[in-house]
Amino acid sequence: MIIDGAGRLAKGPALLLILGAALVVSVVSVTNGAYPLTAADILGVLIGDLNDEVAKMVLFDVRLPRLILGFLVGAVLAVCGAILQGLFRNPLADPGLIGVSAGASLAAIAVIVLGGTWLGGWLDLAGAWALPIAAFVGGSGTVFLAWRIASRAGHTSVATLLLAGIAINAIAGAGTGLLTFYSSDEELRSLTFWTMGSLGHAAWDDVAMAAPWLLLSLCAAPFLARPLDAFLLGEQVVGHLGYNTDWTKRAAILIAGLGVGAAVAVSGLIGFVGLVVPHLVRHTLGAGHRVVIPASALAGGTLLVGADCLARIVVAPAELPIGLMMALIGGPFFLLLLLRTRIA
């Protein structure tokens, strides 16, 4: 059974299809770049036939960490988007919505701009990890803050959470703007990394730091699939069906906070993956989270690796920021989607 009764692709074949696309995109991504590698080169390096030191270095130290990090970040952003959309019962919700991304980038930018002055002690203490750790703490911190504001007597109001997120976003945005205003030219250049996103600096260190959190949120997400399905019918129905509503909400926020915080910490702000991917998956495979979560993970990873590859190719040997690339693809796509739903 490849097509189900509703005319949608069945889960198994669909996941295999996306996995196939992921493999193709991965190979394209690994072979393209400033130092071209052929698929045969890569195979040679992998099985040890080819003794090209440069090829080895490019593959293992540049392309592979970038591929892995890109895939993980894309997967996490898409899955967190799917989770938050389910939680807010709004297909237009985005990880940026509850303030994670804004908080993470504010913290990172604060370290860049104030690192020489007020935050000098933090730079000495954390060294090379100062930025990503600050971003991670900033991201999770804002989620926690929004969460506390929206919770009263053990209950969390999803609507208040959303509004708190919007307010926190505005405050963090103002803070970012203020810091940008006071930054030097040199600082401004490294700021763009956070505001436009990039996988350009990806190294094994980044993978080692972010992967545990990214994998944790990816592995935890499927456990929320059933209660999130119930959430699609409304918060009260979750309780009627025997799930713990507050526990589900807490777990969803925690997963999204950790995942997106870690993603922003290593790749900066990358929008639209969390919005566009789950949306596409729902419309082609259905809205049940047991399909949406794994399919979003695979498709999100594939999309980000593909976009990263494009970002490297279009203006080679320079590269476009990946966040910019995603906005270029995602913005028009999203408008198209809006127009289509308005007509339909």
Binding site: N90, P91, L232, R282, H283
Partner: peptide, 9 residues
Amino acid sequence: VNFPLTVEE
């Protein structure tokens, strides 16, 4: 229901 769920689902 705001999401594309079928009746059977």
